[in-house]
């Protein structure tokens, strides 16, 4: 009797089996396969068999000027894009929340629309905007005698990528924050107004603390996403000028699929994974502590 019961319970795993099969083959296996690969020297295109090299790939990456440059470019992107995207999304969400519901609906859709545009379309469009000879921006700026090297100047290129990224991704963060704002009960604000709190105080003492879990989610997701930036730089600058916008994922992609250095590429992607993990943990710590 007991055995039959146990068997019946275990047969419930049939429901989980299809997912667990996929999970095992395409998530758990590649995760460890990738980690294993990172300790091997393996050029897919050559006939030389894979060779165990220990931590050599990692030490090569950490001393390679190309890897460090790509890491630095990624950092620069994250440090600029995350606060600007989440910050502007927060401002827009708070302001849209004050508009009457009927019109709110249209504004929300307008800000969200760019999220739906595919990266290749968005990338081609902004490449044309930024083109220094016949781009849209410089066509107008030339009217006041300006010519901005949007994506041809080493110091400016990443900032231009960030500007485009804000346009492209801000709506996604905004609608999540707006939904979070609308969960805050009105009577909190009413009570605060009666106590004489002004708009700024209401924002800092009611909105922000109550929005913290949603804000934390948005920030962490944004950081994780931003560390993996690829489409924008690939489409708009291809990593140029002078590799100033070649981010880690592009470098990993080129190492693996143009140079076929699978072990080295795996090691670099694990380093990126490590960086993302450290940043997420720090984020959670900082935002938790304030509670």
């Amino acid at each position: 009797m007991n055995n039959r019961k146990l068997l019946y319970s275990l047969s419930g795993y049939l429901f989980v089996l299809p997912y667990l099969t996929l999970f095992g083959i395409f998530l758990v296996l590649p995760l460890f396969y990738g980690l294993g690969l990172s300790f091997f020297r393996w050029e897919l295109a050559s006939l030389v068999p894979p060779k165990f090299v220990g931590l050599h790939n990692y030490s090569e990456a950490l001393t390679s000027p190309y890897f460090l440059k790509a890491l630095w470019a990624t950092f620069r992107f994250v440090v600029m894009a995350v606060p600007l995207t989440v910050g502007s999304a927060l401002v827009v969400a708070v302001w849209i929340n004050t508009v009457p519901l009927k019109r709110q609906y249209y504004y929300r859709a307008a800000y969200f629309l760019p999220v739906m545009i595919s990266i290749s379309v968005a990338g081609l469009l902004w490449r044309w905007f930024y083109n220094s000879e016949f781009g849209l921006f410089n066509a107008y700026l030339s009217l006041i005698g300006l010519k901005v090297p949007w994506i041809t100047d080493v110091r400016l290129a990443m900032k231009s990528i960030v500007l485009m990224t804000i346009w492209w991704t801000m709506g996604g963060a905004m609608v999540i924050l707006l939904a979070g704002l609308q969960q805050i009960p009105d009577h909190y604000y009413e009570a605060a107004s009666i106590d004489g709190a002004n708009a700024r105080q209401r924002f800092f003492y009611i909105t922000l603390p109550l929005l913290r879990p949603v804000l934390l989610f948005v920030i962490v997701m944004n950081i994780i996403g931003s560390f993996q930036v690829f489409g924008q730089t690939w489409m708009i600058t291809r990593g140029g000028p002078e590799l100033s916008t070649r981010v880690l994922v592009q470098y990993i992609y080129e190492t693996a699929f143009t140079h076929y250095r699978m072990g080295y590429a795996s090691a670099m992607s694990w380093l990126l994974f490590l960086v993302i993990m450290i940043f997420s943990i720090i984020q959670f710590r900082i935002l938790r502590e304030k509670q």
Binding site: F26, L31, L37, F227, V249, A256, S269, L272
Partner: peptide, 10 residues
């Protein structure tokens, strides 16, 4: 938490 790019090569 696993970012997609870690899985790309394997």
């Amino acid at each position: 938490m696993v970012p997609g790019q870690v899985l790309l090569v394997p």
